[in-house]
Amino acid sequence: MGYILNQLLNGICQGSIYALMAIGYSVIVGVVGMVTFAYGEVMMIGAFSAYYIFIYVGNNLPLAILAAFAGSFIIGIVIYKLCYERFFTAPRHISLLCTIGISMLLKNLAQIVFGPETKPVLNVVSNKTFNINVFGSTLNIRLLQIVIIVLVIVLAAALTLFFNRTKYGIMLRAVSQNKDASYLMGINVKRTALLGNCIGCGFGGIAGILLGIYYFSVSATMGSAYSMKAFAASVLGGLVDIRFSALGGLCIGIIENLGIVFTAATFRDIFAFAFLILVLIFRPQGFVSKKGARV
């Protein structure tokens, strides 16, 4: 019982990182209107930006998160310029292929620049563990897990406020819903799409370093698997609904970790992708109800 409970906690923690990834992913797809396959590498760049803060400045978590956001934000600009800007009216597969190319380029470039080996990320958050008694079994909550969950909630709340309360938020949402109408409102659609892409990438970067801290390591090839998971989670939200994508991420995290209870840790990915396949078979439009869309 205690084991299942602890796995559930691990699932929630990991799920909240996935949720953050999925949030970033659905912001990109929503605002830019095109799917990206370079997201895993964006996360990796974010993770490395933070890693070098740990190396050269010390274990300063807020600064590292800022660096992760900034690093991946900048990569977001590059990706936008190379993969999207010219191809808004082109067939969709062109920008998609471009992102795949960028993904390979970044992954290999990173192995040259940062080195191919896995790098340790240790003691960023102290190893403290709280033991809580729940129904007679012990739940071990690590301080790290609390930090991650709280951080994800704070970031998600900040993004929600940004989207609903600010002028830029309304611009981003308008562009994600109808680009032509946005032009007619005098919105600079291209610059707004760039901003959306960069914010989404920034969130991916933060998710990247959180994964690094959670698994105590970063590497140039860490992105690929997570890119697919971010994609899987966003599929739940129909790729563009932020809340449901976040929920999707959380579900995948929990399903993975509970699945391990009954099998072995090496089967982790099977559960995530089996979940994706099931969703695609039974609810390909995601879990969003389309009540608001009668146009």
């Binding site: 611009m171 409102m185 146009v295």
Partner: peptide, 20 residues
């Protein structure tokens, strides 16, 4: 075909109009 923003509220639609 109107092209309003379907999931923005009426008020937010109006606010988007003022952005121009």
């Amino acid at each position: 075909g109107r092209k309003i923003f379907p999931s923005l509220s009426v008020y937010e639609n109006l606010r988007a109009g003022a952005l121009g």
